[in-house]
Simulated assay, not measured.
Amino acid sequence: MCGFSQVWQLSREGMEACNKGDFFTAENNLRTAIALAKCKSKKIHRATMYNNLGVVYQMSGKVQDALEAYSTAVGFLDPGHDGQANLIRRISSKIDGLKQQTAA
């Protein structure tokens, strides 16, 4: 059984840890949140958490992991939904930027 409030708490704590430079804690919290969210959450929630995980990876220099997390986030989103289409564009822009950075 998953408690969704616990999922969001872990996600928030993960991003707080990321902002403090504690990428190990951030990654662990977000991975735990993602695992718990699989049982109840909407796809948009999982997309948000994978996007956050991508941010953690990107900030910690794990570019390939960031690309995978961002791609997974996009996979949960519906391009036919206006709000989600905007999010897809923002995440895709991050992906493109990282790919350009690694190609340079």
Rank of each mutant, 00 (worst) to 15 (best):
K43S: 10
H81R: 12
R89Y: 02
K94S: 15
M59D: 06
T32R: 07
A37N: 06
Q84G: 07
G54A: 00
V74W: 00
S93A: 10
E16D: 13
S60R: 11
K40M: 08
N29D: 10
S5C: 02
G3L: 04
K42P: 05
V63T: 15
Y57L: 07
Q9M: 14
G97R: 06
S41E: 09
M59W: 03
V56Y: 02
T32M: 10
G97V: 00
F23T: 01
F76S: 02
L53E: 05
A37T: 01
Y57E: 06
T25C: 10
D65Q: 14
G80R: 10
V7M: 02
K62S: 12
A69W: 03
Q64D: 09
G83V: 12
Q84R: 05
H81N: 15
K62P: 04
H45L: 07
V56N: 03
E27A: 14
V55S: 00
L30G: 05
A73N: 04
D82N: 11
A33T: 04
N29M: 10
A37C: 12
D65R: 12
G14W: 03
V7F: 04
S11E: 13
A37S: 12
F23S: 02
I91K: 03
M59A: 07
R89L: 09
D96H: 08
L67F: 01
D96C: 08
